[in-house]
Design a binder for these strands. Structure first.
Lengths: 176, 176
DNA sequence: TAGAACGTTTAGTACTTACTAAACGCAGTA
DNA sequence: TACTGCGTTTAGTAAGTACTAAACGTTCTA
């Protein structure tokens, strides 16, 4: 059974849409990236519109979000008013961008507030049953340690310019 | 300025709600976990209801989801018909559970379908402009390699029984 | 057997969000 | 100046989701 290339591409955009939605991004975003990722040349906004079936407005906003995250690059041709977009093909680069983007969010604000609670506990300015205060202190400290470990690990991964099977193997060795 | 313990707990549940929502979970789920995490003894469903302000129905379903993910444990006392819940305090354990849970999802189905596309390309049953087919083949292969690397890394982390600053330091060393 | 004390399920609601359609602004061109 | 070809913005919509209120089923007890 022969499969036609356009059909294959279409299936791929559907898969990436699912993956995108799974990670909390709009599914249209995944579709746009899929189309760009499988294109050997940069595409204009209208070409993306045509290949995804989305409207111009949607593509306009989503593609800008993708660019902000560093997942696509915007370019232009001389004597051509259109914008052209192409997918970042280095996924390690992409991941780094996404993580960086996420760090400046409300998520980080919540982490900071946990930190502030710990500081209060350490300063001894929390009133209540002392045994319970102690218990809460320990739990929050454990949580904080966990966050710190994850944070370090993330930073380490972000610093990599390439994460290949080689690195992973060495990591596995260390963790043994 | 003295802070009362209940106030501190309340702030904490708010923070965890945010974090929960950020990662794509219902915010009530985060609130429930927060209450359990800061309680030194297992809580009944009604106690959770009282401390979170959610309704029994909501707590019932959310707490079951948490249990399925391994983030809380359900227990019961002899001669007491109530169910009691307590938070898993080992986050590494929790992460492992969550990742395991996620692996059986639609996300994995999407990954498999990418794999099938690659197999078709390798079997040469895809028709179309040969240069383009070749290009698509390379891109999909790169994507697959990336997924494999991430997968190995995840499995490695999942296998750890503890991820401490020590491990992270060693990883950092290797990746240097 | 009636009733109480649980947890679960269901029907409905308020809210969010991804999207569409269309108006808009802005630059280049006749 | 009007027109055309762009990308952007906005107003509105359809669908999903987290929740509430209340009915329900079950098991123990009086």
């Amino acid at each position: 059974m022969i499969t036609k290339l356009p059909q294959l591409k279409h299936d791929f955009t559907e898969s990436l849409s699912q993956i995108s939605r799974f990670w909390g991004f709009p599914k249209g975003m995944g579709a746009i990236f899929a189309v760009l990722y499988l294109s050997s040349s940069p595409l204009s906004l209208d070409e993306i519109v045509q290949q995804t079936g989305l409207t111009k407005g949607a593509v306009s906003t989503e593609v800008r979000a993708l660019a902000r995250m560093g997942l696509v690059q915007r370019s232009s041709k001389l004597a051509d008013r259109k914008d052209y977009y192409e997918a970042e093909s280095d996924f390690y680069q992409s991941i780094r961008s996404i993580l960086k983007e996420r760090q400046n969010s409300e998520f980080d604000r919540s982490l900071r507030s946990v930190k502030e609670m710990l500081e209060k506990l350490e300063a001894g300015v929390v009133s209540g049953n002392q045994a319970e205060v102690q218990f809460v202190h320990e739990r929050l400290q454990a949580l904080q340690d966990f966050f710190d470990a994850i944070d370090s690990l993330t930073r380490a991964v972000v610093k990599l310019e390439k994460l290949g099977l080689g690195n992973v193997k060495s990591i596995l060795g260390v963790l043994k």
